[in-house]
Design a protein around this nucleic acid. Sequence first.
DNA 1: ATCCCGAGGG
DNA 2: CCCTCTGGAT
Length: 214
Amino acid sequence: MKNVDIQFLLRTLKNRYPDVKTQLVHQTPFQLLTATILSAQCTDRQVNQVTRHLFARFPDPAVLAAANLTDIKKIIYSTGFYNNKAKNIKACAQALLDRHDGQVPDDLDLLVKLPGVGRKTANVVRSAAFGHPAIVVDTHVLRISGRLGLTRSRDPVKVEFDLMKIIPKSAWSDLSLQFIYFGRDICDARKPKCDQCPLFDVCVFPGKKNTDTK
DNA sequence: ATCCCGAGGG
DNA sequence: CCCTCTGGAT
């Protein structure tokens, strides 16, 4: 796409966020998958607060699939979208039993077929639970990729493929997390802190705040 | 008011 | 493509 210096980009983010890892507390791939479904439009802190209780009572697919839906709703209530999420995590647990012997698959196509699991969730699980390189295109990655001129698309899938072309595979997973942290504390949606941005010089975002004096 | 590591349905 | 689902933090 645009000729942003990828090496500079990776170096800068690595320097700022050296050891990125998911903040979602979990002990198994199943728990990470469930926590990630719950994380839609919700902070990780909030998710961890409810999964603490959720996993204590329903630690694995067999137990969660057999759980009472209303009980699940009560526990996950504060993560928002609780009707959909409760239905999805229960159905997902059941699907894991039916199709995968209770194990979480590491295959993207199989993951995406699970209830409540979209491409973003699938890629989180692939990278965080299985160590597979994956670009996770969430709202932050979508926005920042556009602003940095790494893609011209607004379609998450196309953005994912655009990034895969220009980013070395070894950096895929870390870069996704780094963009997310970077999006939270510098390049947020409404008022990006361009005056504090380490990538200001390579950014092509037309709306960026120019602190130049001339 | 606006945002948080979205997904499913029409 | 759009809409809807939703509580909590700031």
